[in-house]
Amino acid sequence: MATILMIDDDADLAAALRVLLEGKGHQFHTAANGELGLRRVKETGPDLIILDVMMDRYTEGFRVAQRLRDSSDDSEYAAYREVPILVLTAVHRTTSFRFGPNEDSLPVDELLEKPVSADRLMATVERLLSRAPVRP
């Protein structure tokens, strides 16, 4: 089973995802803002990161994604560069930022717009976990 880190300031949504993901046998960790989230990445070594965009700051999730995908070899997050990132956001309609694996957009693997149904979220999580890098 996998370790999943959710970086999101919505404690109620996190509680729902905890029920959902722990119910499938995954280990589930949370962080309520980007700074704490980056620390928790190093502490928990997640197989998947579920990332909100609007937290303490409007585009906080963007910065987290960029830090994690920093391509320089001396990045403190280099070991987590390949960890899949699933963006879960309500901000999609009000920003011109684009998300996705292309070079012109933010470096994340999937984007789901809130609200997302439990079944769709689970299917996306399992798909991303199936291509997550194998950890020693």
Partner: peptide, 21 residues
């Protein structure tokens, strides 16, 4: 739009996911 999105749309969206679970 920022206020509506974060303070109104986001809680509704979270509640819908909880209901879906």
């Amino acid at each position: 739009l920022r206020i509506v999105t974060h303070d109104l749309r986001q809680p509704i969206a979270a509640t819908r996911t909880i209901a879906s679970v």
